[in-house]
């Protein structure tokens, strides 16, 4: 029973990633694309969790945490780039 449910979950998460990819392609502004790429990254963490349950191994569980952290850092960097024009500011303000 659980095998079929996990495969249904895998199909659903893949379908939602494909739908988010449509928004990445045709989104009219840049923040649209960033929002849906962030959601795709978090979906990828869910897909990794489902795959580790299907293969019954705990070796992929680091990757879930890693996908969360990388998605957050990418979104923060891109929103700072959009807002201020540079990601790391070099000028020192004494």
């Amino acid at each position: 029973m659980l095998d079929i449910v996990l495969k249904i979950g895998l199909i659903g998460c893949s379908l939602s990633s494909a739908i988010l990819l449509i928004r990445v392609i045709k989104g009219p502004s840049v923040p649209d694309r960033v929002v849906s790429l962030d959601a795709m990254g978090i979906n990828l963490a869910a897909i990794t969790a489902l795959a580790s349950m299907i293969y019954h191994t705990t070796a992929f569980l680091d990757a879930i945490l890693l996908f969360g952290i990388l998605s957050f850092i990418g979104t923060v960097a891109f929103s700072k780039f959009l807002e201020k024009g540079e990601i790391i500011e070099n000028e020192r303000r004494h």
């Binding site: 929002v35 962030d38 978090i42 569980l61 969360g68 957050f72």
Partner: peptide
């Protein structure tokens, strides 16, 4: 840790990108 981290950071990322927009 993944549950805690995603629960904390995902709304913050949404706020930042909305303000940038």
């Amino acid at each position: 840790l993944g549950i805690l981290f995603i629960f904390i950071t995902s709304p913050v990322a949404g706020h930042l990108i909305s303000r940038a927009a």
